[in-house]
């Protein structure tokens, strides 16, 4: 696994005859007179572990079927307690494939019973793993908001990124979700996630959403609610691919040169607190993978949760943050700018 959080990006400011300069993300914010701080915590994003039935080429978690890191009941209970005590309205469950964790259904039902909106980042193909056939019904019973990656509406691109046979299984899974009402009935939300299959930025969200809706309906009769565009983050497995394919420098330049200050206000790190499978706290899932902790002195673990310290904290940044501020911006909820 490649981890190099200190990497800095060469930035060209566009004026003639000036040499390339190295400007960090923080310095870039200062140049724009921007201050990136957390606001009220509205989403607890819990990464329950790195175990996954897939091993996607762009995965920032380095998740795969051979990973063994998974959350335990004690950490889950700490998270549930914090959500109840501080009335955090949304639990966003991610992984890996969260459904493979033994306590997944306990986590979902307990969070739901305490009144939270529960979102699950569901990779679709996990539905065909052992004992997972009833997932659509389980999701529907708990009104889970399902967020599923489908990088393209064609097989070639999807399988190139997510593995051979993934597209066909994903289409089948989407049909199962539609059959129980997802993407069709009110209250059963099915959102899809597009990310580029390569070293380029996502297209405009509304435009590609319209393409997905038209093509998935025409080819497979599939319905969904929204499509979110997400930029590939230059960390972990995607960074490995950028380097091995000779695209690292040009992609980094693309991100930096596409910096859009209008995205900063809506960045997900401002209202989301990320928790890892051990209970450690981060500003986002990407910082979690780079092991860049929250900028606070005493509340770095869910068991030490202190809302006074966490709200208003300065967000810890590094060069990968240019991925969230490029073009229309990127977050777990899609474009932000």
């Amino acid at each position: 696994m490649t981890k190099n959080p200190l990497i800095q990006i060469q930035r060209r400011n566009g004026k003639p005859a000036l040499p390339d300069s190295r400007v960090s993300f923080d310095e870039h914010l200062k140049m724009q007179d921007l201050d990136l701080r957390a606001s009220k915590i509205e989403i607890l994003q819990l990464n329950v572990g790195k175990l996954c039935n897939q091993a996607c080429k762009h995965c920032h978690v380095d998740a795969s079927p051979t990973r063994t890191e998974i959350i335990g009941r004690e950490t889950i209970d700490h998270c549930l307690e914090v959500m109840r005590k501080h009335s955090i309205p949304t639990l966003d469950i991610t992984g890996g494939a969260p459904e493979l964790i033994p306590d997944f259904r306990y986590l979902v039902t307990e969070a739901k019973n305490s009144g939270a909106l529960v979102m699950v980042r569901h990779n679709l193909t996990v539905m065909f793993e052992e004992n997972q056939k009833d997932l659509p019904d389980f999701f529907a019973e708990n009104a889970v908001e399902v967020v599923s990656s489908l990088p393209y509406f064609q097989e070639q691109q999807t399988d190139a990124q997510r593995g051979s046979g993934v597209f066909e299984k994903s289409v089948e899974a989407l049909k199962h979700l539609n059959a129980v009402g997802y993407g069709v009935e009110q209250g059963l939300v099915l959102n899809l996630v597009y990310n580029p299959v390569g070293a380029f930025l996502p297209p405009e969200q509304a435009s590609i959403e319209a393409d997905f809706r038209r093509e998935l309906r025409k080819r497979y009769g599939i319905e969904f609610n929204n499509l979110f565009t997400i930029t590939n983050m230059p960390i972990a497995r995607f960074l490995d691919w950028l380097r091995s394919s000779g695209n690292e420098q040009s992609y980094m330049n693309r991100l930096v040169n596409s910096f859009n200050p209008a995205t900063v206000e809506g960045l997900m790190c401002r209202n989301t607190l990320s928790v890892d499978w051990l209970g450690n706290l981060y500003d986002c899932d990407f910082n979690q993978m780079l092991e860049i902790p929250v900028n606070v002195s005493n509340a770095q673990h869910i068991s030490e949760f202190d809302v006074r310290e966490l709200e208003g904290r300065r967000i810890a940044t590094n060069s990968h943050c240019f991925g969230c501020t490029a073009g229309s911006g990127s977050s777990c909820g899609g474009a932000v700018g």
């Binding site: 064609q154 691109q157 580029p196 380029f200 405009e204 590609i208």
Partner: peptide, 12 residues
């Protein structure tokens, strides 16, 4: 090629 991909076109 870049701007076509970034505006949502595919290779077809």
């Amino acid at each position: 090629t870049n701007s076509s991909l970034e505006s949502g076109s595919n290779m077809e």
